[in-house]
């Protein structure tokens, strides 16, 4: 069985009213290719939910179905209590979407782009002018207000595209690869913006390949592989549940052989020499340190340097992908 988010204890504690997006058994195929095979998850209100997966896993297909751009073959989708398939106009009026490409009108000025989208979302003339100014100021684009969108730098385009998705103050914001192609300062500034958006009470569903970004922004995570959810829960849960081993770097005073080290320390799952250190994957840090000290005493050597690193979301993600790739382990570890 694939992981189901509703089975998580955290999810069980969530009240119905606290769920912004609910997906159950979502299915979609393109001819013979199964893109989504019974995907289920919940996105809690006011949180960032990271939807992760390798290329072709079905992330964008899911987002397109949730936004009403694509029809589903089966399953249920509810956004703020309504089904986008049966009530698309209502749902679209409550969500904002930033697609992978910055797709505002290149020939229109930045301010006009925002005002036009405000008009499509039913804002009155005065309201949309005021909102456009607010967003231009908030996204540090006031100086570019009268420049055509097409003339902006990539980072500026991305910022304005996110601003445009917020023009009608949506309750749920879908961010599809928001920092792809941006330089480091621009990506950092965008992450700061996303945190501010969430602080203002917006729910964010984020898809990204940048696992550092997901770890920094998201509270909850779902990992999609081959159209199926292989893990779902809070970032800490996923790291604990799937990341498993911690990484320990140790430098000994004498020569140590890998076989001797791993046989004397059962808590060490693997050991690799790197830059004068031994990089160890350990199942239990406390137990491993005890075994390492005993090993040194027995061998007559000393530990000259030691450092431990928590598993990252990236470690967990890689582990999940490896598990999903195993012939007997499609459902993950």
């Amino acid at each position: 069985m694939p992981w189901r988010c509703e089975e998580s204890p955290v999810r069980q504690a969530d009240q119905e009213a606290q769920v912004a997006v609910r997906v159950r058994g979502l299915k979609k195929s393109y001819d013979t290719l199964v893109a989504l095979d019974g995907v289920s998850f919940d996105v809690s209100k006011g949180r960032v939910f990271a939807y992760l997966g390798p290329n072709g896993a079905g992330k964008t297909t899911t987002i397109n179905i949730l936004c009403g751009l694509l029809e589903r073959d089966g399953g249920e989708v509810s956004i703020l209590g309504r089904d986008v398939a049966s009530d698309p106009v209502y749902v679209k009026s409550r969500i904002g979407v930033v697609t992978e490409n910055s797709n505002l009108y290149p020939e229109l000025r930045c301010r006009r782009n925002l005002e036009y989208l405000g008009e499509l979302y039913g804002l009155s003339g005065g309201e949309r002018k005021k909102r456009a100014e607010e967003l231009l100021c908030g996204f540090e684009l006031t100086e570019k207000a009268d420049a055509p969108f097409g003339s902006l730098s990539r980072g500026m385009k991305r910022r304005l595209t996110i601003g445009a998705a917020l023009v009608h103050r949506p309750e749920v914001l879908f961010l599809d690869e928001p920092t792809t192609g941006l330089d480091v300062p621009s990506a950092k500034a965008l992450r700061r913006l996303v945190r501010k958006i969430v602080d203002d009470g917006t729910t964010v569903l984020l898809t990204t390949h940048n696992l550092f970004e997901a770890e920094e922004l998201a509270y909850d995570v779902a990992v999609l592989v081959g159209g199926r959810i292989v893990a779902c829960g809070s970032v800490d849960e996923i790291k604990r549940r799937v990341g498993g081993a911690r990484s320990v770097a140790v430098r000994f005073s004498g020569t140590v052989h890998e076989d001797a080290l791993t046989s004397a320390c059962p808590a060490v799952k693997s050991a690799k020499p790197q830059d004068g250190f031994w990089q160890l994957d350990v199942a239990d840090l406390h137990e491993a340190l005890g075994q390492l000290i005993a090993f040194c005493q027995q061998r007559g050597c000393r530990i000259k340097d030691v450092g431990a690193r928590e598993p990252t979301l990236e470690d967990a993600f890689v582990s999940l992908l490896a598990g999903a790739a195993r012939p007997d382990g499609r459902d993950g570890p």
Partner: peptide, 14 residues
Amino acid sequence: RTGTLERLLLAPLS
């Protein structure tokens, strides 16, 4: 081609 039609399709319009 430019993706702006998708932007229109995301608006609350039939």
